[in-house]
Lab assay of single mutants.
Amino acid sequence: MLDDRARMEAAKKEKVEQILAEFQLQEEDLKKVMRRMQKEMDRGLRLETHEEASVKMLPTYVRSTPEGSEVGDFLSLDLGGTNFRVMLVKVGEGEEGQWSVKTKHQMYSIPEDAMTGTAEMLFDYISECISDFLDKHQMKHKKLPLGFTFSFPVRHEDIDKGILLNWTKGFKASGAEGNNVVGLLRDAIKRRGDFEMDVVAMVNDTVATMISCYYEDHQCEVGMIVGTGCNACYMEEMQNVELVEGDEGRMCVNTEWGAFGDSGELDEFLLEYDRLVDESSANPGQQLYEKLIGGKYMGELVRLVLLRLVDENLLFHGEASEQLRTRGAFETRFVSQVESDTGDRKQIYNILSTLGLRPSTTDCDIVRRACESVSTRAAHMCSAGLAGVINRMRESRSEDVMRITVGVDGSVYKLHPSFKERFHASVRRLTPSCEITFIESEEGSGRGAALVSAVACKKACMLGQ
């Protein structure tokens, strides 16, 4: 009897593995994704193909990295998701002549009506938060230079001027797309009239992360975010950046690689679950690469896999709870928690219980395998993109072996128990001629924006502006 049951459990697990095998990517698959990513990057950089390229390769006008001589107080704003952060950054000489960066910050959550109302409502709310922060720190009387981390696709015309191309991540505030974001912020500050600010720089969160990590390690020339969304930036040779005049030196390019796949480059790798996630998203047909990796989508992918296993009578005796059938019910943090389970399955059992399920031991094991399959594919897909960037940098610099540091931020990278190990191992397999160091950014977005502002202020002083 026991043997029969054991055989049935083994057969069930084997069927589960057959279904989950769809998520496995072979090294040849990853090399294919990497080569296609490089081709799209090239198209994004070139003037004649930029418009139709899915990977936009947006110039950021960040050319210099901090040298350690900029000092002063800077205000930093960070808008990239449902939370908005205001930070005071003091850049100065530390002990023994070292450079020191001290920060104080406060988080504000953005109400739904500000995210989806008008641009005026959104930026009025942001300036209200700045006003509140300055009151708390008794700094209303000071006109501070301000660095703005704005983590949406922007076409820069200068370091302090950028046109919002399109909202992502659930934002829909009308009247912002096609307009200068810094102008919208300046107008809102003017409307309030109770404080003055000098907006000197606007950067993407990947750029802010790279600059913040450069402060720790001067070989950091790539910034990457794996959180709600997924994106990367890197220092490109100016001669390859056709959208900006000049051939000397390097400029940081914001790849906006989340949109890779929007022209069909990933079609052969998309599964039924991916198509369902895409169809029910706020932007169907867009940001397809990001939807395979980002935390906004990972939990939902797992939920759809679990429903398939229920329908195949391989999980929960073929019956799903009402909660499990509800879109968004299986949160991405559950994926991390399930994979963090120590082996007694308590954590998995508790999560499934909150979803109205009474799982068996085998159910718990199957749910864990589903989570591992989805998150491992995410790590491997992400590795193909980064390997594409790094191999490109090595080739354009004609280096036999390139040493490089990548600064990384984002909740999936930082909080998932195995993502970074799987990701690092896969990147290294795909970049055999590179020695890569990964560092995690601390308060990256805010500190990085302030350091970019410090560079901009120093330049302005040198130019006598």
Rank of each mutant, 00 (worst) to 15 (best):
residue 6 A to L: 09
residue 8 M to Y: 15
residue 21 A to F: 10
residue 31 K to G: 08
residue 37 M to L: 02
residue 37 M to G: 01
residue 50 H to W: 08
residue 53 A to M: 03
residue 54 S to Q: 10
residue 82 T to V: 09
residue 82 T to W: 08
residue 88 L to A: 07
residue 93 E to I: 11
residue 103 T to N: 14
residue 109 S to I: 10
residue 118 T to W: 11
residue 125 Y to C: 09
residue 132 D to S: 06
residue 132 D to P: 02
residue 133 F to W: 03
residue 134 L to G: 06
residue 140 K to H: 08
residue 141 H to P: 04
residue 149 T to N: 15
residue 152 F to K: 14
residue 159 I to L: 12
residue 161 K to W: 13
residue 167 W to H: 12
residue 168 T to K: 15
residue 168 T to E: 07
residue 173 A to F: 09
residue 176 A to G: 06
residue 183 G to M: 10
residue 187 D to W: 01
residue 190 K to W: 10
residue 191 R to N: 08
residue 196 E to W: 08
residue 196 E to Y: 10
residue 197 M to C: 06
residue 204 N to C: 10
residue 210 M to K: 00
residue 220 C to S: 09
residue 220 C to T: 12
residue 234 Y to H: 12
residue 237 E to D: 12
residue 251 M to I: 15
residue 254 N to V: 06
residue 255 T to C: 13
residue 256 E to T: 13
residue 259 A to I: 04
residue 259 A to S: 10
residue 260 F to K: 00
residue 265 E to C: 03
residue 269 F to K: 05
residue 291 K to Q: 13
residue 292 L to D: 07
residue 292 L to M: 11
residue 301 L to N: 12
residue 308 R to I: 03
residue 313 N to Y: 06
residue 314 L to Q: 08
residue 316 F to N: 14
residue 325 R to I: 12
residue 329 A to G: 15
residue 330 F to G: 01
residue 333 R to Q: 12
residue 333 R to Y: 09
residue 334 F to W: 11
residue 335 V to F: 06
residue 335 V to L: 10
residue 336 S to F: 14
residue 339 E to L: 01
residue 341 D to I: 04
residue 356 G to S: 03
residue 356 G to P: 09
residue 356 G to F: 09
residue 360 S to D: 04
residue 364 C to G: 02
residue 369 R to A: 10
residue 370 A to R: 00
residue 372 E to F: 08
residue 375 S to Q: 08
residue 375 S to E: 09
residue 375 S to K: 04
residue 385 G to A: 12
residue 389 V to A: 06
residue 391 N to L: 14
residue 392 R to Y: 08
residue 407 G to H: 03
residue 408 V to M: 09
residue 409 D to M: 14
residue 416 H to C: 12
residue 427 V to W: 04
residue 428 R to K: 12
residue 429 R to I: 15
residue 431 T to K: 06
residue 431 T to A: 11
residue 435 E to Q: 15
residue 445 S to R: 12
residue 448 G to Y: 11
residue 450 A to W: 15
residue 452 V to P: 07
residue 452 V to F: 09
residue 454 A to V: 11
residue 456 A to H: 03
residue 456 A to E: 07
residue 459 K to A: 11
